[in-house]
Design a binder for these strands. Structure first.
Lengths: 125, 125
DNA sequence: ACCGTATTCAACCTGACGGTTGACAACGGG
DNA sequence: CCCGTTGTCAACCGTCAGGTTGAATACGGT
């Protein structure tokens, strides 16, 4: 029960995390936040959109657990949270590895079949 | 010029790849395709949606370069392409590492400040 | 106390997404 | 040759994402 809840919850986190990073503006924000915390205004500066739009983007990142906002007077400095990244890389790497392993097996199989083929030919000639 | 094109193109691939994996159905498909190729019908079986919907999902995955379809009579076997995964993990890992390194530096800084603080206190007492 | 700065909230618009159904294309088996 | 199987295309629909603008909130400086 608790186990299933945990899995579903993780599903949801992955949904949100991948969706959040699907937007190039948000990916750029994350990239910049990796090297330093920043306020909403600072983050908004390079982009040609309203401050409100940036605020929305930050909310998405926050809901995805990629970021959290603290407070400093009227500023709301944004700080990157790296944990969720782990979840994503684990998911990706798991299936990438599985797939690649399978490819290797298939390659080997094909190689063996070729081997047999040539041996057969040699025998027939 | 070619360099910039390349970067933009990669941006676009990341957009599509992250967006594609933001959908739990599509992630599940990828998970299943990691262990074996499958036809559209086979892929559709577990889900409670029309075959057409599944076909659309596959188109999304294909456009994202995560998958490609070959042909075998009227079947269209789907095969996972692992390359794009690399692109994603590289992106994620780059910034995760950058962020974590920064955190470590901050931790060290805080530790030093604490050290100074206690030394000061010791001196004052 | 007031004003300016920094940010969010609310309402709205548009386009894309995920789903449906119905028609159509392609191919092999009997 | 035709029929069933497998899958795609096209049109449509409801919902949500990302953008806008305008008002509201929260705080510090003076």
């Amino acid at each position: 029960m608790c186990l299933i809840n945990h899995m579903v919850e993780q599903e949801d986190r992955l949904n949100k995390a991948f969706a959040a990073l699907a937007d190039p503006t948000r990916r750029d924000m994350v990239a910049r936040l990796a090297s330093a915390d920043a306020t909403v205004g600072e983050l908004a500066a390079p982009y040609d959109v309203s401050l409100q739009a940036v605020s929305k983007h930050l909310k998405v990142l926050e809901d995805a657990g990629l970021v959290h906002r603290s407070r400093d007077a009227q500023r709301r400095p944004v700080h990157l949270d790296a944990e969720v990244f782990d979840l994503m890389t684990k998911w990706i790497e798991r299936y990438r590895r599985e797939a690649e392993e399978r490819f290797r097996r298939i390659d080997r199989l094909l190689a063996e079949m070729n081997q047999d083929q040539t041996e057969e030919e040699r025998g027939a000639s």
